[in-house]
C-alpha cells in the first residue's frame, strides 16, 4: 500500500473515531451505530491480519479505557474481529453492498458477543436479551451507517493505481 493510501485510510479512521465520540452521544439511541467497528473493518481489509489485530487491540484499549469495567475485553474482541476481517477481505472485496453490510453486521455482532462474554458485566436473561435482541439491532444499525459512510468516503478510500 502506498503512502498516500495509508494517509487516506488514516484520515478516514480519524473521521470515524471522531464520529464515534460526537455523533453517537448526540444520537443516544438504545442501539447506536458503532463507528469504531466500521473504522476497524475499513482498516483491517487493507492491511495484513497481524497488523489488523494490532490495530484492533489498540482501538479496543481506547474504547475500554472509557468504560468503567472490562478493560481488555474490547481489546480482545476487536483484535479477533479485525484479524478475521483481514483474513476474509477477499469476500469484502466483492464490492457488493448487501455483502458489505452483512460483513459489518457480523463483525459488530461478533464483537458484542465476545465483549460481553469476556467482560462478564451481564448475566442470565439480561445477557441473552443483550446478545439476541439489542446486539443484532445495534449491528443492523451499524451496517446501515457503514454503507452510508462507505458511500460518502468512497473518494477517499479509492486505492491509487499501482
Amino acid at each position: 500500500m502506498k503512502g498516500i493510501d495509508v494517509f487516506r485510510i488514516m484520515i478516514a479512521f480519524g473521521l470515524l473515531l471522531v464520529l464515534h465520540y460526537t455523533l453517537r452521544p448526540l444520537l443516544a439511541w438504545r442501539s447506536s451505530p458503532d463507528f469504531l467497528v466500521i473504522a476497524l473493518l475499513l482498516v483491517s481489509i487493507r492491511v495484513r491480519p497481524g497488523s489488523a489485530a494490532i490495530v484492533g487491540f489498540l482501538t479496543g484499549l481506547i474504547a475500554d479505557s472509557i468504560s468503567i469495567d472490562g478493560l481488555g475485553a474490547g481489546a480482545l474482541a476487536m483484535s479477533v474481529v479485525a484479524f478475521g476481517a483481514s483474513w476474509l477481505k477477499a469476500v469484502f472485496f466483492a464490492d457488493n453492498l448487501p455483502l458489505i453490510a452483512f460483513f459489518i453486521f457480523l463483525g459488530k455482532w461478533a464483537l458484542d458477543i465476545m465483549y460481553h462474554l469476556a467482560s462478564g458485566n451481564l448475566g442470565g436473561g439480561e445477557l441473552a436479551m443483550q446478545l439476541l435482541v439489542w446486539s443484532p439491532l445495534a449491528a443492523a444499525v451499524t451496517a446501515l451507517f457503514g454503507l452510508i459512510v462507505l458511500a460518502l468516503l468512497r473518494p477517499i478510500l479509492r486505492t491509487s493505481p499501482a
Partner: peptide
C-alpha cells in the same frame, strides 16, 4: 505465521489485561 503470532500476542495481552486486579487496571485506564 507472523500474523498468527501477532494475533496470539494481542489476545494474550488482552487476557492479561482482563485478568489484572482492579488496583492495577484502574491507574492504567
Amino acid at each position: 505465521r507472523r500474523d498468527t503470532l501477532l494475533l496470539g500476542a494481542c489476545v494474550t495481552l488482552s487476557v492479561i489485561t482482563l485478568a489484572l486486579p482492579q488496583a492495577v487496571r484502574d491507574p492504567f485506564a
